[in-house]
Design a protein around this nucleic acid. Structure first.
Length: 574
RNA sequence: CGGAGCGUAGCUCAGCUUGGUAGAGCACCUGCUUUGGGAGCAGGACGUCGCAGGUUCAAAUCCUGUCGCUCCGACCA
C-alpha cells in the first residue's frame, strides 16, 4: 500500500475528548474516528488491525473445536422474556420498533438466540458436546461509554457458547475455552492473565476473567504472585483477618456512652474517644426488594456489593435512605447498631467480626454508642458471611502471604452457566437413559475492539504506538526520503516494495513528498514494527537504514541485504 | 441517574470577568525557498461562536432553557 493512496489522518495534537493514552493514540494515529459518544468508525488502518485480531481469534476458536456461526443482531423480545432477562437486563437493552410498532431488541449478547437454536437442533446426547462462536457487533445501552473503544455502545465481541450433557463435560469445554483465550491474548502480544471472577446471581465457581494490567483499567485485581492467587476484587476472598479481642473485655456488660457530634467511624477513632476502627462495628442498612436488611462490617472494612449479591441471591438491593433508616432504627446514620434490633430484620455480619468482643457500635439513639459488645452474646441472630472488600496486605487465602492489588482491563470472560438458559428456552436432549435433560452451558466472551485498544494501552512510548508484529496494520514502513520517481532512492524503494510484497510481507510505502523528520514522526506515531529508510546520504555510503519500532539503534545495512534482513525480522517477530 | 467540567475554524485553544470590527498556532490552497527528526517567507480559503429564547441601541460575552461532549460513581467484553 502506498501512503498517498490510503487514508491515515494522523494528528499532532491529542483530541481534547480523549483522556487516556491509548484513546489518544487510537485517534492520533488515524485508526478510528468518533461519530458520537461510544460509536466509532474504523478507518483503513484500524480495520486492518481489527481484522488481524479477528483472524487470530478465529484460528484459536477453530483449533479448540468451536464452530463459527453468525446470529442476528436484531432479536425478538420474546426470547428475552422467556429467559427473564427482558427485565433483569433492561438497562443495557437497546430497543427499536418496526413500522407496525412491534418492538425489537438489539442484541447485547446471544445466549437467548443460540439456546433457541440448540433447542431446535440438538435433541440427542449423541449431538453433544458442541461449542459455537461468532464474531459480531454487540449493542449495549451503556450508562456511560468512555475511553474510546474501551466501553462503547456498539462494539465487536467474540462470543462463544458451549453445550454439554453433563457437568463434567461442561468443565472440559470450559477449560478448552480458557486455554484458547490464553493463546489468543499471547498471540496478540498482550500480557493478560486469568483471575477468578464474580459470578453474581448465577452462582457456581467457574468464572474467570482475562485481565490486562493497566492503571487505566476499570477493574481491580487482588493477587499474590508466589501463591498464584488472583481474583477480581468483587470476588476476592482473603485468609482470616480476625483480630484478637482483649480477654479482659469479654465478660463486661454493654454500656451506653455519649458521643455527641460523632457521625463517622473516623470521628470515633480520632476525636476524644480514640476507639480504633478495627474495634468498631459498621452498621449499614440496605433494602432488598423493599425489605430492610442490616449489614455489619468491621469499622475499617468496606462492603463488597458483589459479595452481597451472592449472599442474598439478588442484585435488587440498594442502600437505605436516611428517612427509612430513622424509621427502622430510630436514629440517624452515625449512631446505628444492630444490638437489640427486632429479630424480624435479617442481619448479615462479616466474618471478620464473628466471635469478637469489646466492640463499639451505635446505640440507635442519636449521639450515643455502646461499648463492650460481645458479638456472640449480644448479636445472636446474625448470619455470618463474607461481605468485606479485600485490602492490600490482607492475607492470601491460599498462602497467607500479603495480597496486592493491581488495576486492570477486562478483555475476556469465561463463564460456566449451568442450565439456566437451557431450561428457560427448552434446550433439552434425550439422554442414554431415555430421560429428558437440559443441556449444561458455558458462555465465553472476548471484547475484540477492547482488546485492540488494550494492546495500545500496553504497548506504547512517548512517540506513539508500538504494534506487535502479529497485529500491526502493516509490518514494514518503507520510507524513501526522496519521492521523485526518477531518483535512485525512489527506484530502490520501488524495488524493495515489489520484492517484499512478493514474499508476502505487508508493506506500506510512505511516498508522501514530505520532509524526513515528518515521515519518521508519523511512522513512529502509527507504530509500524519495522521501518526501512532509504535516503541519498546513507545510500552514498552504500547503506539503507533499518529501525525497529520497539527499540534499538538505527542499523545500517547494504541494499543487497535489506530485503532478506527485513524478511528475517518479520518472521522472528511473528 | 447523582456529582464536576467543557461547547468559538478540520484540530488544539485564546477572547467572556468589565457587552461594541471573530482571533492565534497547527492542518488546508497558491507561489518561492528549503530538504535526514513534525522547515521558512509571502499570499489565500475556512466561523450561523452547540441550539432556542430573553435582556440591551448592541450579545461569543449577561440571563433562562435545551442539546451535545468529557471526567468521577453504579453496570460490563
Amino acid at each position: 500500500m502506498r501512503w498517498t493512496h490510503t487514508l491515515i489522518p494522523t494528528l499532532k495534537e491529542a483530541p481534547s475528548d480523549a483522556e487516556i493514552l491509548s484513546h489518544q493514540y487510537l485517534i492520533r494515529s488515524g485508526m478510528v474516528r468518533k461519530l458520537t459518544a461510544g460509536l466509532y468508525t474504523f478507518l483503513p488502518l484500524g480495520l486492518r488491525v481489527l481484522h488481524k485480531i479477528e483472524k487470530i481469534v478465529r484460528e484459536e476458536m477453530d483449533r479448540s473445536g468451536a464452530l463459527e456461526t453468525l446470529m442476528p443482531a436484531l432479536q425478538p423480545p420474546e426470547i428475552w422474556q422467556k429467559s427473564g432477562r427482558y427485565e433483569t437486563a433492561r438497562d443495557v437493552l437497546f430497543k427499536a420498533k418496526d413500522r407496525s410498532d412491534k418492538e425489537w431488541v438489539l442484541g447485547p449478547t446471544h445466549e437467548e438466540v443460540i439456546t433457541t437454536l440448540v433447542a431446535g437442533e440438538l435433541q440427542s446426547y449423541r449431538h453433544f458436546p458442541k461449542t459455537f462462536y461468532q464474531i459480531q457487533t454487540k449493542f449495549r445501552d451503556e450508562i456511560r461509554p468512555r475511553f474510546g473503544l474501551m466501553r462503547a455502545k456498539e462494539f465487536i465481541m467474540k462470543d462463544a457458547y458451549s453445550f454439554d450433557t453433563t457437568d463434567e463435560g461442561a468443565q472440559v469445554s470450559y477449560k478448552s475455552m480458557y486455554d484458547a483465550y490464553a493463546r489468543i491474548f499471547k498471540r496478540c502480544g498482550l500480557t493478560a492473565f486469568a483471575v477468578e471472577a464474580d459470578t453474581g446471581v448465577m452462582g457456581g465457581k467457574f468464572s474467570h476473567e482475562y485481565m490486562v494490567p493497566a492503571e487505566t483499567g476499570e477493574n481491580e485485581v487482588v493477587y499474590q504472585e508466589e501463591s498464584g492467587y488472583a481474583a477480581n476484587i468483587e470476588k476476592a476472598v482473603t485468609g482470616s483477618v480476625k483480630l484478637d479481642s482483649d480477654p479482659a473485655l469479654k465478660d463486661l456488660e454493654i454500656e451506653k456512652f455519649p458521643t455527641p457530634g460523632v457521625k463517622t467511624i473516623e470521628n470515633l477513632a480520632r476525636g476524644s474517644h480514640k476507639i480504633p476502627a478495627t474495634q468498631q462495628i459498621k452498621t449499614l442498612v440496605y433494602f432488598l426488594e423493599d425489605k430492610p436488611i442490616i449489614l455489619l462490617l468491621r469499622g475499617d472494612d468496606q462492603l463488597n456489593e458483589a459479595k452481597l449479591t451472592g449472599v442474598v441471591g439478588s442484585a435488587e438491593f440498594r442502600p437505605g435512605e436516611e428517612a427509612e433508616i430513622v424509621e427502622l432504627l430510630g436514629a440517624h446514620p452515625g449512631s446505628l447498631g444492630a444490638v437489640g434490633v427486632s429479630s424480624e430484620v435479617k442481619i448479615y455480619g462479616d466474618l471478620a467480626i464473628e466471635g469478637t468482643w469489646g466492640m463499639v457500635t451505635g446505640a440507635n439513639e442519636d449521639g450515643f454508642h455502646i461499648k463492650n459488645v460481645n458479638v456472640s452474646r449480644d448479636l445472636p441472630s446474625v448470619e455470618w458471611v463474607d461481605l468485606r472488600t479485600a485490602k492490600v496486605g490482607d492475607p492470601c487465602p491460599t498462602s497467607g502471604k500479603p495480597l496486592k492489588i493491581q488495576r486492570a482491563i477486562e478483555v475476556g470472560h469465561v463463564f460456566k452457566l449451568g442450565t439456566k438458559y437451557s431450561e428457560a428456552l427448552g434446550a433439552t436432549f434425550l439422554d442414554h437413559d431415555g430421560k429428558t435433560k437440559p443441556a449444561v452451558m458455558g458462555c465465553y466472551g472476548i471484547g475484540v475492539t477492547r482488546t485492540l485498544q488494550s494492546v495500545i494501552e500496553q504497548s506504547n512510548d512517548k512517540f506513539g504506538v508500538i504494534w506487535p508484529m502479529a497485529i500491526a496494520p502493516y509490518q514494514v514502513c518503507l520510507t524513501p526520503l526522496n519521492v521523485d520517481p526518477a531518483s535512485e532512492v525512489m527506484q530502490l524503494a520501488n524495488k524493495f516494495y515489489t520484492e517484499l510484497v512478493s514474499k508476502g510481507v505487508e508493506v506500506i510505502m510512505d511516498d508522501r513528498d514530505e520532509r524526513p523528520g515528518f515521515k519518521f514522526k508519523d511512522s513512529e506515531l502509527v507504530g509500524f514494527p519495522i521501518r526501512l529508510a532509504i535516503g541519498e546520504k546513507s545510500l552514498a555510503n552504500g547503506v539503507v537504514e533499518l529501525k525497529m519500532r520497539a527499540g534499538g539503534e538505527v542499523e545500517k545495512i547494504t541494499p543487497e541485504m535489506a530485503v532478506a534482513t527485513v524478511l528475517e525480522r518479520v518472521h522472528e517477530m511473528l
